[in-house]
Nucleic acid binder design. Structure first.
Lengths: 349, 349
DNA sequence: GTGAAAGCGCTAACAT
DNA sequence: ATGTTAGCGCTTTCAC
């Protein structure tokens, strides 16, 4: 219950008007060096901290950003959030959480963030369904600063920071193809998400380039988030039943890869001797799972940082042209991949 | 840029004064049913949303909570956060993120949350060092509503929600002991954390009860968070070199277990035939790693929910007695554990 | 039960 | 370069 110092006391202490103090804390140029110094001293002396709530009310800028995430259990998003939070703090912004699911007939949380808490902008770190995407577009059209992360709109340039998933899927698959694999399975993420579709597109592209005919029965849909491991496991079981001549799998995230490997082992097969596995994300477990995972690496932190920078730019200049930042991925080679036919004893051994 | 409806317009529309509207939105009892109805209609008609910033300034209650986490990459905390956020929203509270590390000579983020953003309370979902703990105690003494999660103070009752880690470590180890294991290794979390110390305490207790002499050379310190896998891997390598007669390991989180299993395999041994492994957390990967992990399960979401409830109670009544909520853990049996000596061929085969 | 007045701590627009 | 005057949109007294 320590009494907070107000701008008033600082003004009195420094022998200036409230206004002048305001100018100093807002770094305005029109204050004489001497006055500025005097005010700053008073601020330090009294330990004054401007009240962000009052500033927000008066200036109509809350210096608060809304954060909408699907869940904190997907490594991509948690890393993005970490980067985003850091960058926001650098600019004296704070994030407010608006992630949690709401009861169906409720208003979306980000809406409340906008109308009640008056956040200056919103970072969407989840790919919602078409409904939500439409909402996002509408929001942006109404002039709300919005940046999306982890997906982007294909038919228009929208403020977004994303990973080049087509290229990622292509690189992952091409790596397998280059080693001589011809029967390559694919366990996708949820095909409602663009990232999964894109990674699948990259997969197909790599096959085409190698004149390998695309076989839909080698593709099975998995899941992101907490259920990934299970999805990878069951997906792999299915693929194994589907095609015993499979020699490689591209699982669209590392968690699914781990689940897939589990299923492969259960079938009495070895990774990579019988079946090679490529993951995606280069999560921490990738390096230390058995075998260590060949996977696609991307700087998710960086995605968060760039997203906040972009969002801040939009807040400064709401009329600026939309900008789409697509970042690259790189292949990390470990031990879950080998040329086909390296099994010590043929299949099932 | 849609003009926000203000309380003024609602008052005019309903033909009442501003205060009456205020009373209605604050659910005060001293409004006649009829007036209340009229006001509510006006609110709906105009789509009025009270401006939380203005309310905060006037009432000195921001309806905002500060959230301090170590990082979002530890499953315990992310799940706690998910539960906490949900519960907060139910009570019209929002969370502000104050997690990120700050430059050394900077003020801690949670301090800015308190002095600048005027959050009504702070949830500490990380166990900082002694310095931070002292800060937390000081904050609380000054009357700031604070709840800590994931650890608690042993020498005093402080507002905290935590897991009974001693019991958890005891259960995990006892399970191994009951199967006949005598040489049981332990890969702890960072021993600077209470949870790791407690789990270790439980481990020792279980050994003692079985008259197994505690051998410090079987205990090695690992890590939480992103580096867990690596720590588990290296820790296990170390243990294996240290004691070839080891038949079981209690790794204090699932990620370390996965890393440990990797190391065990690399040494040409099998899990659980040669070495049994018990993890902790029952993370999603536990079920689908190979082999599926026997581990300790706890409801982390629930921890978050209870923490917010407690925090809200404190905010309502700052003078209430401190309360410490310690939740239980349960063992989940899967396939990473077997009685000792089940190897098909003896060690190294 | 309802309204009028005052003010939360700051910024904006205009003065000087 | 600095001060004055008005609010921002609410809640809080305290009237009636």
């Amino acid at each position: 219950m320590s009494k907070h110092v107000t701008i008033n006391q600082v003004a009195r202490d420094a022998g200036v008007s409230i206004q002048t103090v305001s100018r100093v804390i807002n770094n305005r140029y029109d204050v004489s060096t001497e006055t500025r110094k005097r005010v700053k001293e008073a601020i330090d002396r009294l330990g004054y901290q401007p009240n962000a709530i009052a500033r927000g009310l008066a200036s109509k800028r809350s210096r608060t950003l809304g954060l909408v995430t699907f869940d904190f259990n997907d490594i991509f998003f948690t890393q993005v959030v970490t980067g985003a939070e850091d960058e926001a703090h650098q600019h004296d912004y704070f994030f407010m959480l608006g992630s949690s699911q709401c009861s169906t007939n409720d208003m979306p949380k980000y809406h409340r963030l906008l109308t009640e808490r008056h956040v200056d902008g919103v970072l969407f770190a989840r790919e919602g369904g078409p409904d939500e995407q439409e909402q996002i577009l509408r929001l942006a059209n109404e002039g709300t600063p919005v940046v999306v992360v982890g997906f982007h709109f294909k038919n228009q340039v929208f403020n977004a920071v994303d990973i080049d998933n087509i290229d990622g899927g292509w690189q992952a698959t091409k790596h397998l193809v280059a080693l001589g694999h011809k029967r390559i399975g694919c366990i996708t993420g949820p095909l409602t998400t663009q990232s999964s579709q894109d990674r699948l597109l990259g997969y197909r592209k790599a096959l085409e380039e190698a004149d390998i005919i695309y076989d839909p029965s080698l593709v099975i849909e998995g899941a992101y988030g907490l259920t990934s491991h299970g999805a990878g496991y069951h997906g792999m079981k299915h693929l194994l039943a589907q095609a015993r001549d499979l020699t490689a799998v591209f699982a669209q995230n590392d968690r699914m890869s781990v689940g897939a490997i589990s299923a492969i082992r259960e079938a009495g097969l070895e990774v990579p001797e019988d079946i090679s596995v490529v993951g995606y994300d280069d999560t921490p477990e990738a390096e230390f799972s058995s075998p260590p995972l060949t996977t696609m690496r991307q700087s998710n932190n960086r995605v968060g940082v760039e997203a906040v920078r972009l969002l801040l730019r939009i807040i400064e200049d709401p009329d600026r042209e939309p900008e789409q930042i697509i970042m690259k991925t790189e292949l990390v080679e470990r031990r879950s991949v080998a040329p086909p036919g390296t099994a010590r004893n043929p299949k099932g051994g």
